[in-house]
Amino acid sequence: MSPKTKKRLAAVIWYTIGIVCFLVMLFPLFWMISCSLREETYIFSTPPHFLPPKFTLAAYVKQLQTEQFPVLPSLKNSMIIALATTVIAGVFGTLASYGLARFRVKGAGIIIMLFLISQMLPQTFSLIPCFVIFKNIGVFNTYWAPILGCCTAAIPFSVIMLRSYFMSIPKEVDDAALIDGCNHLQSFVRIMIPIVSSGIVVSLVFSFLQGYGDMMYSLTYVADSAKWPITTGIYNVVGRYGLEWNRAMAFGFIAVLPVIVIFLLMEKYIVEGLAAGAVKG
């Protein structure tokens, strides 16, 4: 074999491997969609049908009409929790990371340590003491319980990630703004925020995903299922009561849809956040 054909053969093999791995990784998602678009009778068939033998949206229609757990209101709850988490973590995180990166703050080491430790905290860890704390401050059984819970993960992530963005801006930029007559707040809002905007987008996307993906805070702190996000609803309806699988998959796909949309719009930022060592759940 000549070196050239050898090289071409190697390329063919690597591309085949690349495509096979890609298909295997995406198979679970494909399978979810495929099963959501068929009749229950075709779910468990031997041999399995990879594509729906008879295409139907019946599972979606049924699931959207069910009174057992109304899907669309729960999607609204998810959005409320996710957006509130995003806003709070975005504002608090941006301010704090700027403060820590730009000023000499006494005890900065300890403060940063606190943020780092909280990234390591298991969710179960905060679930137990916050159960009592949330009861005492009266946020039990409200949207605030999952929002505050999700913020305990989203704020530290935003601070730690954005701090490195702010530190990469030369101090001269800041000084120049101050000389031109800006005060610290003006220079922060008009100069610094635009420069780190891509970092802020990363932190917002991850805070949103954190808030949207959470199921445990609502399950533990919110007794009223009318306030549950779609993630908690899925766990409860499918996990505890059982559901026809085509409807379960339709339910799942409805829940995943916002995540897919965000992913397609924000892929670049998600990769960036991941490379920065992003945390999840």
Binding site: M25, L26, P28, L29, W31, M32, C35, L209, Y212, G213, D214, M215, T231, T232, I234, Y235, V238, G239, W245, A248, M249, G252, A255, V256, V259, I260, I262, F263, E267, I270, V271, L274, K280, G281
Partner: peptide, 17 residues
Amino acid sequence: LLSYILPASVCSILFKF
């Protein structure tokens, strides 16, 4: 990356299935 950002509860019912 989609598999990474999927909510855990959806991921778990999918694998349970």
